[in-house]
């Protein structure tokens, strides 16, 4: 990981967050057993395409028509997978721990939208992207996904191996100052 875990600029504070529990769950997202176990684990309903229901560290993100990302505190992952296995036994699904395969960042501040807008080919106008939505995309030269924790805060997830690149990219983008667009 980057040596400094937090960098501050007038635009936004970029923070490398600690490990977060993440489970890749593939299966029939319309199946009642799957919905039930996801609700039991996170308290959230299955989000619509392009959306995530995340409160603090816990929630669900829609990854693809047959894939969810379940987020929860890191320590709860093994028990959660056991619960999924028990609940979905006999059906076709896949649940794997990917907590250690990911890195998570927070970009917080008045310029957060522009920090992301410098790096991602995404329309981040407030009418087009707001809390509740979830976007998998390209950030610089890596794959990333993000959602908004609140109106001024993005949470960004990428692969662990490129965590340094992601942190430095976000930091450079924030440090360069505002564009004055959003």
């Amino acid at each position: 990981m980057a040596e400094a875990m937090q960098k501050t600029s007038p635009m936004a504070v970029v923070t490398a967050l600690g490990p977060r529990g993440m489970i890749t769950l593939r299966g029939d997202l319309a199946a009642s057993k799957l919905k039930a176990v996801c609700k039991a684990l996170t308290g959230a309903d299955i989000p619509a395409a392009g959306h995530a229901t995340v409160v603090k560290e816990t929630g669900l993100a829609w990854m693809s028509p047959d894939e969810l990302l379940i987020m929860l505190p890191h320590a709860e992952v093994p028990a959660a997978i056991a619960k999924i296995d028990a609940a979905l036994k006999g059906s076709h699904y896949l649940a794997v721990d990917v907590s250690d395969a990911r890195a998570v960042f927070r970009v917080c501040g008045s310029g957060a939208r522009e920090v992301m807008g410098k790096l991602c080919p995404v329309d981040l106008h407030p009418d087009q992207f707001a809390p509740g939505q979830f976007r998998r995309t390209r950030m610089g030269q890596i794959a990333a996904a993000f959602w908004m924790r609140d109106a001024a805060t993005f949470e960004v997830v990428c692969f662990r191996s490129v965590a340094d690149y992601a942190f430095d990219l976000l930091t450079v983008s924030a440090k360069a100052g505002p564009v004055g667009y959003y």
Binding site: A49, W62, S64, P65, R135, R136, R138
Partner: peptide, 9 residues
Amino acid sequence: YCGTHADET
């Protein structure tokens, strides 16, 4: 599948 208007990149 996801409704995204995806940039070619």
